[in-house]
């Protein structure tokens, strides 16, 4: 409702600004900036959570990635694909090679064509991508009331608030406040832009059973799967931070050598005396 008001106010201003841009750039810069309404303004901003990997020198928690994959496989993967992550990407990150090979062998992958020109099924290999729930976008929409469950490979980078947003979204389902009519087939979630999301609440206490005995509460599962997706979006995260430590550290040491060298080289110019006669 508020946004409709702002849109009615701002859209003519945008049009006016755009037409005057041709007239002269200097004039344009003096005009008041048009206020733009973003879809995000209609959503509750997610709180910033102090993740185990938040700090400048903090790595991902491998145990959380491991649990997060369990949550993804048991809950999320029934609707969401992850077509940029292959089984081999999990090796050495949260699973051993043997474990991942077993996981891959459990799925059927269509491969081919063979020498007769036919497609055939074979057990999955390390190089296969994680199995997608639907063969194409149309099938995904048809199965989900017209809404497309987005691919989750890069979702943390693709949403404002990143993993904070995911955690808030997954734990943020509640009854709609009075005065808000939720359309049929949608669910109220204040963190989703617009407030109404086509995905039902997916995480309930005990939805998965963790092999390491962690209590599978809603917030724990949301935290773990958000960590897993943060890793999927940025697998180089740990190495990036470690290299940052190494390079910034090395250059901080070199800085003092450079400082000395500069003073050394300049000492001649700083101490000479010029005489003009």
């Amino acid at each position: 409702m508020a946004s409709a008001f702002w849109r009615s106010l701002t859209l003519p201003a945008v049009a006016a600004a755009a037409s005057s841009a041709a007239a002269g750039a200097t004039l344009f810069s003096l005009r008041p900036r048009p206020t733009l309404a973003f879809a995000d303004d209609e959503a509750l901003h997610p709180p910033h959570i102090n993740w185990p990997h938040s700090s400048y020198l903090a790595s991902f928690d491998a145990a959380a990635i491991r649990r997060g994959y369990e949550v993804y496989r048991n809950v999320c993967s029934s609707c969401h694909s992850m077509n940029r992550i292959a089984f081999r990407n999990l090796v050495g990150v949260a699973f051993t090679e043997e474990e991942v090979k077993e996981m891959a062998e459990d799925i059927e992958v269509e491969d081919g064509p063979n020498e007769e020109g036919l497609m055939f099924s074979r057990p999955g290999r390390l190089s296969d991508i994680l199995p997608a729930p639907y063969p194409n976008e149309e099938a995904a929409r048809y199965a989900n009331n017209g809404a497309l469950p987005p691919d989750l490979s890069l979702i943390v980078k693709a949403r404002h608030g990143a993993e904070n947003y995911l955690w808030a979204l997954l734990t943020g389902y509640r009854d709609a406040p009075q005065g808000i009519n939720v359309r049929e087939g949608l669910y109220y979630n204040p963190y989703f832009p617009g407030g109404q999301i086509a995905m039902a609440r997916a995480l309930y206490d005990g939805a998965v059973e963790y092999e390491d005995g962690t209590d599978a509460t809603t917030s724990q599962m949301a935290k773990d799967v958000s960590t897993f997706l943060a890793w999927a979006s940025e697998p180089e995260h740990d190495q990036r931070k470690k290299m940052g430590l190494e390079w910034i550290g090395a250059f901080s040491i070199l800085f003092f050598f450079m400082l000395y060298m500069k003073r050394f080289k300049w000492s001649l110019y700083k101490t000479r005396r010029l005489e003009f006669r």
Binding site: P52, L57, A58, S59, F60, D61, A62, A63, R66, G92, V93, A94
Partner: peptide, 10 residues
């Protein structure tokens, strides 16, 4: 700094 979080330790 990251004690207990690496895959080797997990």
């Amino acid at each position: 700094i990251n004690k207990g979080k690496s895959w080797e330790e997990v």
